[in-house]
Design a protein around this nucleic acid. Structure first.
Lengths: 239, 239
DNA sequence: GCAAAAGTGTTAGGCTTACACCCATGC
DNA sequence: GCATGGGTGTAAGCCTAACACTTTTGC
């Protein structure tokens, strides 16, 4: 077989999470297609790059940022994850972008078989301005609870990604990845309440966070609100 | 691209766990190669089969059993997961078994790039007699703490599989998958002690298990030991 | 001073851990 | 009866949950 630039039947899609105004957001690309259909930022993997590097590259293409929390959450490889219609729509676009890639087409149903590896990324919403690539008509942030129509099984991927985020946010203490450099305890609390979909009593939540000994107290944050100013915190560096 | 029977650059490897005599075991295949080298049961994925079905098939090939607990634990796709030497050794064997598969070979280092999806399976050690396929010189159970030399990054896959098992055994209550139909509380305890590598006080462990309300008490197990006979249990069916 | 929100302190309850004890079994 | 391991009961301690209260801020 001749050596191709990309791996023919393997793609990688990123669920890029951001947190803004008490809402969980993710980056979607509106594809350059006749129909209005959206997709997770993704792409084929290069023959010469590690999977993890492919995730970093794909993330960088759409966000221009690096050094981000990234984690794999599963592979998605159902034979019928791509409908006939979607194949028709998508294959033209894929050929344009990846002329070297010619995934085998099933003789019976004329469908491509592509397996996708799912990664999720946690980014600081404020720092990221979604960026278009050739594939995209537009790219932007979307509320996870108000997603437009997604291609293939990307809806499933979002659900699985969210599930894994829920499992890991507290266990691995990932909150700082979704917040700015400095934040209040209330910010963390609201992030938790959004991700877990329930309220946390403020006093106990604060105690729990402070008892972890991973936060460094900084100056107070004066917002002009007619109430006590909360302290700002950042993650202790010696970790 | 012509349609091939298997996906060219994607394999699936299974870490098949069994529990026997207080030891955690897994099935390895001794490959038909000049060098003595072992591998996880695995293989290429068919174009026409779902990933999950591929895992079931590969598991069935080596164990002749079905309806087994199976779960994905990650993808393994470093560019250099296959050494030059391993490529030389393995490619002949692969060509024989999978004549349709011709993974692209890198022009510089002449290496194949293959990504593997890792699944782990939990089986009843007593019910499984490992079975050879063409690829194997032999297949058998090996103590996870005394593994022979494994090919590629299979050692890493075993470690990751074990890590995920440790995370899930208690959380998802998977113990029954590694034990016979009926078992004593002591059996569960010993399984936990093996997987987690530490002792659990018997009385508290029993209480915890019984409080879960998922076990059905059966008759006592008379072994001839000169001590009180323990009760046998099985998982409640209404679950 | 007052309302709003931040932050602290104290107590209650539940779950896990530790210790003590009783029970069945075979010799 | 006695040693052995199974099984049960009870108390201590820790972590979380719930409630009360104080502090700071802008008007």
């Amino acid at each position: 077989m001749k050596s191709t630039k990309h791996i023919a039947q393997l793609t990688l899609d990123c669920v890029i999470f951001g947190f803004h105004h008490k809402k969980l957001k993710l980056i979607l690309s509106k594809l350059k297609l006749a129909e209005e259909i959206y997709a997770l930022p993704g792409g084929f993997i290069l023959q010469e790059e590690d999977i993890e590097d492919a995730a970093k590259r794909i993330l960088f293409e759409r966000t221009s940022i690096q050094d981000v929390y990234l984690e794999e959450f599963g592979t998605f490889g159902r034979v019928n994850r791509m409908s006939d219609e979607e194949f028709q729509l998508f294959s033209g676009l894929a050929k344009e972008l990846y002329p070297d890639v010619e995934p085998p087409v099933n003789e019976e149903n004329k469908k491509m078989r592509i397996i996708s590896i799912g990664y999720y990324a946690l980014v600081d919403f404020e720092k990221v301005i979604p960026k278009k690539i050739d594939l995209d008509e537009s790219v932007g942030w979307y509320d996870i609870n108000e997603l437009p129509k997604l291609i293939f099984d990307h809806q499933e991927m979002v659900q699985k990604g969210l599930k894994v985020l829920q499992e890991n946010l507290d266990k691995k203490l990932l909150f700082n990845n979704l917040l700015p450099e400095t934040f209040t305890l209330k910010d963390i609390q609201e992030l938790y309440e959004t991700v877990y979909g329930k309220a946390f009593p403020a006093n106990n939540f604060q105690k729990k966070m402070l008892d972890l000994q991973i936060l460094e107290r900084l100056d107070k944050k004066f917002t002009g609100a007619k109430s006590k100013a909360p302290y700002l915190y950042r993650l202790k560096s010696n970790k």
